[in-house]
Design a binder for these strands. Sequence first.
DNA 1: GCCAACGTTGGC
DNA 2: GCCAACGTTGGC
Length: 154
Amino acid sequence: MTTQHLYWLMKSEPDDVSIDDLQRTGHIGWYGVRNYQARNFMRDGMQVGDGVLFYHSSCAQPGVAGFAEVSKLAYPDPTQFDAESKYFDPKSAVEKPRWQQVDVRFIAKTRILPLEEMRRYPELAGMQVLKKGNRLSITPVTASEWSFIQSLLG
DNA sequence: GCCAACGTTGGC
DNA sequence: GCCAACGTTGGC
């Protein structure tokens, strides 16, 4: 059986975790996802080695800020059990966790590829992150979108 | 800070 | 199971 690696775009608010933070630490647990669709992508879709576009959202210049990769399969997000955390979920039980996270490993910091620039490339027109009203923090990326962005930023 | 889009909640 | 109200996301 062959293992087909996939590609993902993952949004992070740089005020919380930026590409510089990831570069500094080398890897990070992708905590705080509280949307079922995004969770399911992590839980059911991601494999170790999958490519990640690290995207800065809710900031002055939203856009792709670097490359990373999935370094650990989905496991329970510890912040859901932490009453001090803003991601605490009182409805989640340790024996039956509701939320998952993967670990992500730093690969490269790039120039910012702004959302506004991404909109100008027909090659990227199908990306979910460009769709009106898109709010999903984790979305699949096709192999051709991935290599196009690599050629822009590499 | 505004507000469109959209997911979740909960009453019925 | 419907759907209105509510909360959140995130670009601008």
